[in-house]
């Protein structure tokens, strides 16, 4: 069995324990059930990633361990986001493989590509990378904020960055949701979009947090199968995929 990989799995669970504030001391053990290996805990302790209590049951992350776990979590959630948004598939199993392969640079470039998503498809925060802090952008990014769409054009929502659950619920009731089509009617003085037959006014802060697929956007399984006539060019694949195949 790949030891590095197993160690990373344990660190990941420890991160989640910390993130969710779980107080159950046996959480780690239960999470792995019969596969739980005390030797991995020892390995991690030797590597300086964790500290164990007297009886070996209470485990906390050291600073180094925390940083390491953060990288894994970031890779995992970015990967989830990529697979979920781009391919609409079973992102979980793919992401699990991804997290152990991706190096920091690769993760950052995917992050740039996705427009620095803040939350994974489950709604958990994605730890920020250096690229997010500098808000790096490349022209290849397959998504763009609604603010960059031209008036009169339609686009499919890739994901929505939000700070508060209620905000996303409110948008959900207006059917502005990942996978849904929206048409931008105007940008100024406020953004007005048409979505599922209703017009909705938004301010710039909301509009810039709605990320759209740049072209067509047939990757996500939304309910809306119809696009406006000629309003939306359909092409297979997005930027980097097309270039590869060309």
């Amino acid at each position: 069995m790949n030891k590095k990989r197993e160690r990373e799995e344990y660190l990941e669970v420890l991160w989640r324990i910390k993130e969710d504030g779980i107080e159950d001391p046996d959480y780690l053990k239960n999470a792995f059930g019969s596969d739980f290996e005390p030797t991995i805990i020892e390995d991690l302790e030797q590597a300086g990633h964790i500290l164990t209590g007297d009886n070996g049951s209470i485990v906390t992350l050291t600073d180094a361990g925390y940083e390491y776990a953060r990288k894994i979590i970031r890779a995992h959630r970015i990967a989830e986001k990529l697979i979920c948004d781009a391919l609409g598939g079973d992102f979980e199993s793919g992401a699990c493989e991804f997290e152990h392969i991706l190096n920091t640079d690769l993760v950052d470039s995917i992050c740039v590509l996705l427009g620095h998503p803040r939350r994974c498809p489950h709604g958990k925060p994605i730890p920020q990378g250096d690229c997010c802090k500098t808000a790096a952008r490349t022209v290849q990014s397959p998504v763009m904020p609604l603010t960059e769409l031209e008036s009169g054009m339609s686009g499919r929502v890739a994901f929505i960055n939000y700070s508060d659950d209620m905000q996303i619920y409110k948008m959900d009731t207006l059917k502005i949701k990942p996978g849904g089509m929206i048409k931008l009617l105007q940008k100024s003085p406020s953004f007005v979009v048409s979505c599922e037959g209703g017009d909705v006014a938004l301010d710039d802060a909301v509009a810039s947090n709605i990320l759209l697929w740049k072209e067509g956007g047939q990757f996500n399984a939304g309910g809306e199968n119809m696009l406006g006539p000629g309003k939306c060019r359909r092409k297979r694949g997005f930027g980097f995929m097309r270039r590869k195949s060309a």
Partner: peptide
């Protein structure tokens, strides 16, 4: 809620939306 993997509200919305999309279709 705490131990739910992911955001339970989003999950509920997602399922409801799938149902709604299906009905509307």
């Amino acid at each position: 809620r705490k131990h739910f993997k992911g955001n339970i509200g989003l999950e509920i919305n997602k399922k409801r939306n799938r149902w709604i999309d299906d009905v509307v279709e």
